[in-house]
Design a protein around this nucleic acid. Structure first.
Lengths: 199, 199
DNA sequence: TAGCATAAGTAGACAATGTCAACATTTAGG
DNA sequence: CCTAAATGTTGACATTGTCTACTTATGCTA
């Protein structure tokens, strides 16, 4: 289970910051962002309602930390998929990440966290994206239009994740296929070209 | 400007429901979903803090109404683009919608509105999506794999919109192109195929 | 046209939350 | 060992969503 600090009730916690992130992470996935109240997190962590403020300037800062953690996980997943396989594998891993941790994914891309206000988040996200873009560029077949094709590839998987996550894809379109198969086949229906078509 | 009911301060408003949606819509785009407090909307509409409850069971119901309105607008925009042009035009219109009304778009797809709890929203959204899917199927070049290709096309534009909206696309990737051009060229870098590739 | 049911709006109350300020307790460094 | 900086705690406040009870206007019916 989770590491227990503060076995003996002591004034100081030991590593409250990590504990808060851990607790908040669970709450996030189980009950959604809306349910992620600062006071409730404190309660579950067994500290006073104001203790979190020693580690996070405001609620949004905690959310930012969770999002940052998410970007690191996503980055790791993509790195792994990139090593193992090619473009398709990365795409599948991307969607898999989103479907496995929907609330986290929403938090990361929902836009409710002011990107300007949390430079640390910006940095982590940027790093992840740059790695992603690099891996994509190296793998998109048409090196000529690699730039745009990479963006297109990213947008494709990102959009697919988002739509699946929102339950926007009708069952008729899925034709009974499970998520993984569906994703694989949808992604397979796309090709990238080097240059813009004539018209 | 906006239609003024309740010129003479009368007990009844005339059409508060519409007024609330109008006011909330402005607030949404100007200040974001978070700032959309029920009491503030009431205040700006010039009614008591409880008046909205005669028209919306809860805060989320007002959000649902705004989202529904958004889906209708999006549907209309897509219909218009479908008449005017082809697949590319529709895609560009989709992204344009998102970039023009970012907060609305986020509300529509952010997942913070319980879809199960608001059947009316579900209905409007479904109707829009079915029309969209139909139009796509009719326009995706490869009729054989039209189903998956349509989903892919939708996911592509949706994801592109989302990424642009979140400022996730680095300026280097955009290479100085304005949004419209960038979108057009990214979308042009993709082709749809009839069947899954051999590997 | 009078009267009444109902829709629409108001007033007040309550618990919960985010956040601030002031105070308490550890911990660590000199 | 003693003191400053971290880290937690208590208490307070404004704001919000939402409930209940009350008031006023509207429109139907007799």
């Amino acid at each position: 289970m989770s590491t227990f600090r503060r076995k003996k009730r002591s004034y100081h916690h030991g590593d409250l910051q990590a504990a808060l992130i851990r607790t908040a992470g669970k709450m996030l996935e189980k009950e959604g962002v809306e349910a992620l109240k600062l006071r409730e997190v404190a309660r579950r962590a067994g500290v006073s309602h104001n203790a979190p403020y020693r580690h996070f300037a405001e609620r949004e800062a905690l959310l930012a930390a969770l999002a940052a953690e998410g970007f690191e996980w996503l980055g790791a997943a993509q790195r792994k998929a990139a090593e193992a396989g090619g473009l398709r594998g990365m795409g599948e891993a991307y969607v898999h990440f989103a479907l496995t941790q929907p609330q986290r994914f929403r938090l990361m891309f929902g836009g409710q966290i002011s990107i300007a206000k949390h430079p640390q988040l910006r940095e982590v996200a940027t790093k992840t994206f740059e790695a992603l873009a690099g891996a994509l560029c190296a793998r998109v077949p048409e090196a000529q239009g690699a730039g745009d094709s990479s963006i297109a590839a990213w947008a494709l998987v990102h959009g697919l994740a988002q739509l699946l996550l929102g339950g926007r894809i009708s069952s008729v379109a899925k034709r009974g296929r499970d998520d993984a198969t569906f994703v694989r086949e949808v992604l397979a229906s796309v090709r990238f070209v080097a240059r813009a078509p004539v018209a």
